[in-house]
């Protein structure tokens, strides 16, 4: 009898492991890439008469900026792809028919920011990430009534 009427829990909630999605990470990552690119651009180049220390310091600082830029451009790409593959569902395509193009474009721009390291490339990335972040916010807003 006990076995017949045993109570068990069935999960109906979203992703297992539970997917909590946000757009802060991509915005923060793109902003960091932009800041690093700006710092790289502004870093003063040691002139002909520079001492060895000045040259070493320049390369060290530049390497650190580049390293952070690379790290965050990679993180940005990774998080955009997570939103694309895990968060956006077929239903969202009605609302955002260009989501695939925008993701394609933004992730390509992550690579461009890595490859070129220019302020211009970082600006383009920021703009593209902003569009994806907006789509996410709108999608969240439209599904808010069904939240658990």
């Amino acid at each position: 009898m006990k076995k017949l009427f045993q109570t068990r829990t069935a999960e109906a909630h979203c992703d297992i492991p539970c997917g909590v999605y946000e757009n802060d990470t991509i915005k923060h990552a793109a902003e960091t890439v932009f800041k690093m690119a700006t710092k790289m651009h502004d870093l003063e180049f040691p002139g002909d008469g520079a001492t060895k220390e000045e040259v070493v310091s320049y390369h060290n600082t530049m390497a650190r900026y580049v390293q952070v830029k690379e790290e965050y451009a990679h993180k940005c790409k990774e998080q955009i792809l997570i939103l694309w593959t895990d968060y956006f569902k077929p239903k969202h395509l009605d609302q955002f028919p260009d989501v695939h193009d925008k993701v394609w474009n933004a992730t390509k721009l992550c690579s461009k920011a890595k490859r070129e390291g220019t302020v211009e490339a970082a600006k383009e990335l920021k703009a593209a990430v902003g569009e994806i972040a907006d789509m996410f916010e709108k999608a969240e807003g439209s599904s808010a009534t069904y939240n658990y």
Partner: peptide, 25 residues
């Protein structure tokens, strides 16, 4: 264990979906 609604079925199996489509896996 998970709980979902049957959307369609054939000899290959059942297609299930949660009612909360934007959140369901």
């Amino acid at each position: 264990q998970t709980i979902k609604r049957i959307i369609s079925m054939d000899e290959t199996g059942l297609v299930v979906e949660g009612d909360n489509l934007t959140r369901s896996t």
